[in-house]
Design a protein around this nucleic acid. Structure first.
Length: 855
RNA sequence: GCCCGGGUGGCGAAAUCGGCAGACGCACAGGACUUAAAAUCCUGGGACCGUAGAAGGUCGUGCGGGUUCAAGUCCCGCCCCGGGCACCA
């Protein structure tokens, strides 16, 4: 294959860009800004995956395009380098995570530069850099030193938290404050992984289980972030961003808002009431028993002596089960009667109190009223244990029982309908539709003091601590006298200690707990001695705010300068954020949460961090399966670049198909794109790389003008819409058209190079210089199309008889309907077909078609 | 089970304010160049019927209906694939 010298060209231009700091970004506030962001990579030992260049090329294209359109473009890159994989690798190979990280980062940077991306490396960030994680810790302290004002729906300083009058001692005030901080310590059942020696967030459990690790539930002391306080805002503000609908949906489902009611069931013979949460308060008259989660605090109170052993036994078994075992693996529902009864506040009837692990302790109130007639789970349980089933909702129009077609011995009736048998002395729901019954019963509950309407969220607080070494230390000191204090901002960063051994301590504590010299702390500010918190932050922490650090990465006084933040974040934040779907919920939800806390304090100027979000699809192996080492179907970017060059890889990944779609790799496809780049090369130069003599300063033909201006228009629009595949197709059409020309008009070729440049910057720069230019294309303007060149004097229309195409003809572009009809009828084929027939109907679409319906 | 996406040639895909289905590329076939090959260039192509060849005809965007002069595109009912959630009361 005779080929253009891509290796030489790519090396030359990469060196040129580096030596001339071509991509240096300046904070020029006079220009309109465009902030385009990639999800920064985790620098693994495996190096760049072939999927990485897909999103990165797309953003590189847009960044260059926007730059050429006159925007001041910020398109930065950095590394999310804390986290388990590096620490695992370090333990296995005995290399310090810091060294492993540096090596991996170097390799990633080499590969990113090899692909010709236009990053300003002066703005590189690394989450493991103390100068960076100082601010991660700072933001943690902002959160720690805050409470959430429900009335204002925003975070406020903890000092401003109103303290109830009956709390006066400093110790009690501190306890009260701790109960309201947005970062707090709790002892809760967590997902403990013995092999990893750490707890995992609920969201992370599946990922590690897939990798073959076991995860069990175990109560432990943990740091939590009160993200649930922001549930409503996180939900509402989704409406203000331009995100993929599926991702918005996922976040909505994850937050999981439910409207319903809390209802109080008095325990017979006790003062206490059981509060249940239900979304179907309209079925209250059908509640025939109450179920508590095994971990519910009232369980011991309501358990009668003769049931003690069985209940204790059941609770113990439930406690060690993971959520997974309590749900998917449990084919049959299990439960245990406590021996006590509660009163259904609507019917006044006694209903038995059970415990069962199908009721989750952490959702709602941890207790439910069971309505077996109208809930599948309650129905199953009632059948299992022979509990009464009472119907209170019927199909609309079938309120009279003998016409009622519902067979409750088989399944529950869970649809909306109309209430029956729902009446007491104070309220009747009978004949009301489900929605009306809900409103009415809530009204009654509130008036009678038996309950109230409420909203529940599925979202849980964020488990924020990890028992690992390779993460940000949590800057809290626990003193020997039992008090504690958060470090002040001027004491940050709290550095990770140098460590020889970073294996888990084995006690459930972080490896940091074994470093006496680091843990033991003499506090100069208070003169007290104590211990530093040994848990570290999860990997998500550093990525919660990195987009802000790019704005001012070297700032030592602030996470970023106020004015620069205002400029680059503007009215609506990052203009475009591109990354994989795998972060649709977690990273994007956590980052939004941190951003909102910062927003509450005025540290950032936008409500939401990312205005527009786009997910690139996965690149599959040639066999249509996921690429994996074990399948041996991995394609390495280094190999492709060595064989065909970075430009070919970039253009091919854009040409494969829609950016958002999952698509299989095709080695023949790269060759095709490589052939295209060679055709581009030969459009300009001969075998020796000398500019062809038939590239001349001549005017374009009408046809060439049309193709050129259509290409400019089409590709501009395609880039804006992220339709890179059709943009590449249009460049191919351009090259095919102009290759045909014996004399190639220089002006069109100049424009074409500028269009090609965002996609294939190396070959474009080389050809640009061969045309005698001395500066980089980075500083050129993107061509602008001329609408008048797109106007054709004649247009081809189709002529149909009975809606079938029978002929085509050219007509003047501004022809009237009558003229079109006359031209069509004048065609011999049409005249012949119409002859002797009556034309029943004529449809004329200007500039498109004429259709004769004949009989 | 629920919520999102998506089903178009041998393959990746274009085209959705309803108006020539299959742009562009891959693979394939034929030809030119060559001692030969590679590379390059040119030509062809949805399927079926038809014809010596052409002309011509029928069918065709997952399946079944519908609206319309006209449907890949709009409406109704299904099937299949991918992703997410899943005892959340």
């Amino acid at each position: 294959m005779s080929q253009y010298p891509f290796q030489e060209i790519e090396h030359r231009w990469q060196n040129y860009w580096a030596n001339n700091s071509t991509y240096r970004v300046h904070d020029d506030f006079t220009k309109p800004k465009y902030y385009i962001l990639d999800m920064f990579p985790y620098p693994s030992g495996a190096g760049l995956h072939i999927g990485h260049p897909e999103g990165y090329t797309a953003t590189d294209i847009i960044a260059r395009y926007k730059k050429m359109k006159g925007f001041n473009v910020l398109h930065p890159m950095g590394f999310d380098a804390f986290g388990l994989p590096t620490e695992q690798y370090s333990m296995k190979h005995g290399i310090h995570p810091y060294i492993a990280t540096m090596n991996n980062v170097d390799n990633f940077k080499r590969q990113l530069n090899m692909l010709g991306f236009g990053y300003d490396w002066h703005r590189e960030i690394n989450t493991t850099d103390p100068a960076y994680y100082k601010w991660t810790q700072w933001m943690f302290l902002i959160i720690y030193n805050s409470w959430f004002d429900e009335a204002l729906q925003k975070a406020r300083p903890i000092e401003e938290l109103p303290i109830p009058h009956d709390i006066s001692s400093p110790a009690d005030i501190e306890i009260y404050r701790d109960e309201h901080r947005l970062a707090f310590i709790d002892s809760i059942p967590v997902n403990w992984c013995e092999e990893l020696g750490t707890v995992l967030a609920n969201e992370e459990v599946d990922e590690w289980k897939e990798k073959g690790f076991t995860v069990e539930r175990k109560p432990m002391r943990q740091w939590m972030l009160r993200i649930t306080k922001y549930a409503q805002r996180l939900l509402d503000d989704l409406e203000t961003v331009e995100w993929v609908t599926s991702t918005k949906e996922m976040q909505k489902n994850w937050i999981g808002k439910s409207q319903g009611a809390e209802i109080y069931f008095p325990v017979l013979g006790e003062e206490e009431k059981i509060t249940v949460f239900t979304t179907r308060p309209d079925t209250l008259f059908g509640a025939t028993y109450v179920v508590l989660a095994p971990e519910h605090p009232l369980v011991s109170l309501v358990t009668t002596d003769d049931n003690k052993h069985r209940i204790a036994d059941y609770r113990e078994k439930a406690a060690i089960k993971s959520d997974l075992e309590r749900t998917e693996l449990a084919k049959e529902k299990t439960g245990c009667f406590t021996g006590s009864y509660a009163l259904n506040p609507a019917t006044g009837k006694e209903v038995p109190i059970w415990i069962a692990d199908y009721v989750l302790g952490h959702y709602g109130t941890g207790a439910v009223m069971a309505v077996p007639a109208h809930d599948d789970r309650d129905h199953e349980f009632a059948q299992q244990y022979n509990l009464p089933i009472v119907q209170v909702v019927a199909h609309v129009g079938h309120e009279i029982s003998d016409e009622n077609p519902i067979d409750l011995s088989k399944a529950a009736f869970t649809d909306d309908g109309v209430n029956i048998e729902s009446e007491n002395d104070e309220v009747s729901l009978n004949h009301l539709l489900t929605s009306q019954a809900k409103t009415k019963i809530i009204e009654w509950l509130e008036n009678s003091g038996n309950g109230k309407g409420t909203i529940q969220y599925r979202l849980r607080d964020w488990l924020f601590s990890r028992q690992r070494y390779w993460g940000e230390p949590i800057p809290i000191i626990f003193f020997e006298d039992g008090t504690k204090r958060a470090m002040d901002y001027d004491e940050l960063p709290l550095l990770l200690p140098e460590l020889q051994e970073f294996k888990p301590s084995g006690t459930g504590e972080s490896p940091l707990a074994t470093v006496e010299s680091w843990v033991q702390y003499y506090d100069k500010k208070t003169g007290k001695t104590g211990k530093i918190e040994t848990n570290t932050m999860p990997q998500w922490a550093g990525s919660c705010w990195y987009y802000l650090r790019y704005i001012d990465p070297k700032n030592i006084n602030r996470f970023c300068d106020e004015e620069k933040e205002k400029y680059w974040m503007g009215e609506t934040g990052v203009d475009l954020y591109v990354g994989g779907t795998e972060h649709a919920v977690l990273h994007l939800l956590y980052a939004r949460f941190w951003h909102k806390v910062l927003f509450d304090y005025g540290y950032v100027s936008t409500n939401e961090p990312f205005k527009k979000l786009f997910h690139q699809g996965m690149i599959l192996a040639e066999d249509n399966r996921k690429m994996s080492k074990s399948l041996g179907n991995v394609v390495n970017p280094d190999d492709i670049v060595a064989q065909f060059g970075a430009d070919a890889l970039r253009v091919f990944e854009m040409f494969m198909g829609p950016l958002e779609a999952a698509k299989p790799w095709a080695s023949k496809g790269v060759e095709g794109v490589f052939r295209f780049l060679n055709r581009v090369w030969r459009l300009f130069v001969d075998e020796n790389g000398t500019l062809l003599s038939n590239v001349q300063d001549v005017p374009l033909t009408k046809e060439q003008e049309y193709v050129l201006h259509y290409t400019i228009k089409k590709i501009s629009e395609d880039i804006e819409n992220l339709s890179m595949n059709t943009a590449v197709a249009q460049m191919m059409i351009f090259v095919n058209e102009f290759t045909k020309a014996d004399i190639r008009p220089l002006s069109a070729l100049r424009d074409f190079i500028k269009i090609l440049y965002p996609f294939a910057p190396h070959i474009a720069e080389e050809l640009w210089h061969k045309l005698g230019n001395t500066d980089s294309l980075w500083f050129e303007e993107f061509p602008i199309y001329d609408e008048s060149k797109l106007q054709k004097s004649e247009v081809e229309i189709i002529v149909q008889i009975n809606s079938k195409i029978k002929a085509k003809c050219f007509i003047a572009v501004n022809a009237t309907s009558d003229e079109m009809e006359a031209s069509a009828l004048a065609l011999p084929d049409i005249a012949q077909l119409v002859e002797g027939k009556s034309i029943k109907k004529k449809i004329v679409v200007p500039g498109k078609l004429v259709n004769f319906i004949i009989g």
